[in-house]
Design a protein around this nucleic acid. Structure first.
Lengths: 254, 254
DNA sequence: ATAAGCGCTCACGCAGCGTGAGAGTCAATT
DNA sequence: AATTGACTCTCACGCTGCGTGAGCGCTTAT
């Protein structure tokens, strides 16, 4: 049995909302105290989630009431649908965040990058070139080239559409990062983003170990081609990235 | 010069909205007729588009007014603030998604888990026990224990609050995963979640290489304590996880 | 017994318009 | 000149979905 506060926290809503739903008869508690305290059970939790589900889909409450009180509908399907709606909203938010970062950056840098400018330095060929050069260095420095081979194998399989998506994700991370240069490489949000960058590499190219990641960081400032591309995000971005990655690796392997 | 209807259609909004914006002084027409008719020029069109842009980004109208009308208004700060708002919304969505998965599972499994039940198997001590036993096995099997040492050092440092957060994240992943058992271990969403699980380990404990990850997968079915805890997410969850991790490792090192 | 923390019930307020009502205006057509 | 129909205007109330107190009681721990 949950009291209002627990119930509200469980479903990510407010106490007032529960009061409101009780008022309009949309969701009444399982039972109430002599003192008027509301108590909800598992059944009500599910019902509340359903209500929030339809609310997220912009159904007015009155309509939700109709739908829910009609027992001819499939709960499971409703929830499954709801999940995808939420995921889309989340994606939309992520895009918005990236868009805000973009605006922030253009404010700070004064430069306005066109879509093409951003797109250019990240096409398939370029990445493969980088990886080739990178692979050689890896071989020299660490004497093992599994990561590169794996990456090569995987990148060969990507279709152009996949590439576009991967590029966009990568750019979104760089955009966010470069917008936060002023906070310094040790800033917690910066470090979070560095973690994302690493994950992105792991997801799409090869398992990015700390050694490899550190190597990449050095590459960013040493390889002129890499550096030039990165600097398009802002002057000093390559060095910033290098430092931030170093800090990240230090902390993770602290 | 555009009249209200044209203007509204041009920007994809309503006449009433234009009236409203005029009322609150957000967007006044270039000039008005003796009869009160509103007329807008190209300048106003652009301004309206900007307004709608910020509206899309969920800025309240009052804020938009400040931004647009005061050229000395700190756009940067506004955007930064807005960014944090978006992040909070995103976090809320993530909680909701996890909650939906929880609901789906209780529908499918038929069992009703209380919150406590879910929380129990993941307190600090239990995790340390697991890690201890895991470390021993690691040492036996692969003869190097760096990963464990590193993990131990890091887990020792976490504060209780951190633990709560880490646990919750871990549970969210397991919750989502167990809700998708019916899709099979090779399902793409399942595989994505497995990747998240690995990342979560890497982020909070130690760099989780494929070898280690595979080892963990076996542990999940072989170590009775591990298994018992995992089975609380559903019957067969441990085995499901084991298989899914195997598939994941196969695919990544394809 | 006192204070913190949670619960309750009013009841007003808010954004951002939608939606009439009632009335004037404009251009084209009869 | 009169009519018609599309367009405009100004009130002004209504709506959703709660937020945010105010003022109060319960309960639990110190």
């Amino acid at each position: 049995m949950y009291k209002v506060k627990e119930m509200a926290e469980l479903a990510g809503t407010s106490i007032r909302t529960l009061h409101h739903y009780d008022e309009i008869g949309l969701l009444t508690p399982k039972w109430t105290n002599e003192k008027g305290y509301r108590f909800y059970g598992e059944e009500e939790v599910k019902k509340l989630q359903q209500i929030l589900f339809f609310k997220e889909m912009d159904f007015p409450l009155a309509r939700i009431q109709q739908i829910i009180e009609n027992p001819n509908f499939n709960e499971e399907e409703a929830l499954s649908q709801h999940r995808t709606v939420l995921m889309k909203k989340k994606e939309r938010l992520e895009k918005l965040i990236s868009s805000v970062d973009q605006s922030l950056q253009s404010l700070q840098g004064g430069k306005v990058m066109t879509h093409e400018d951003r797109f250019k330095p990240f096409n398939k060929e370029e990445i493969e070139k980088h990886q080739q050069q990178y692979a050689e260095e890896v071989e020299e420095r660490w004497g093992h080239t599994d990561a590169y081979k794996e990456s090569k194998r995987r990148t060969d399989q990507y279709k152009d559409e996949d590439w576009k998506k991967i590029q966009e994700e990568s750019m979104a991370i760089d955009r966010s990062l470069s917008a936060r240069m002023k906070d310094g490489p040790g800033d917690s949000e910066v470090q979070r983003l560095i973690g994302e960058k690493r994950r992105h590499i792991t997801d799409h190219f090869y398992p990015c170990t700390l050694e490899i990641f550190r190597g990449l960081g050095s590459m960013y400032v040493q390889d002129p081609r890499f550096k030039k591309n990165l600097e398009q995000w802002g002057e000093g971005y390559a060095a910033f990235l290098h430092e931030a990655i170093d800090i990240y690796c230090d902390r993770v392997s602290s």
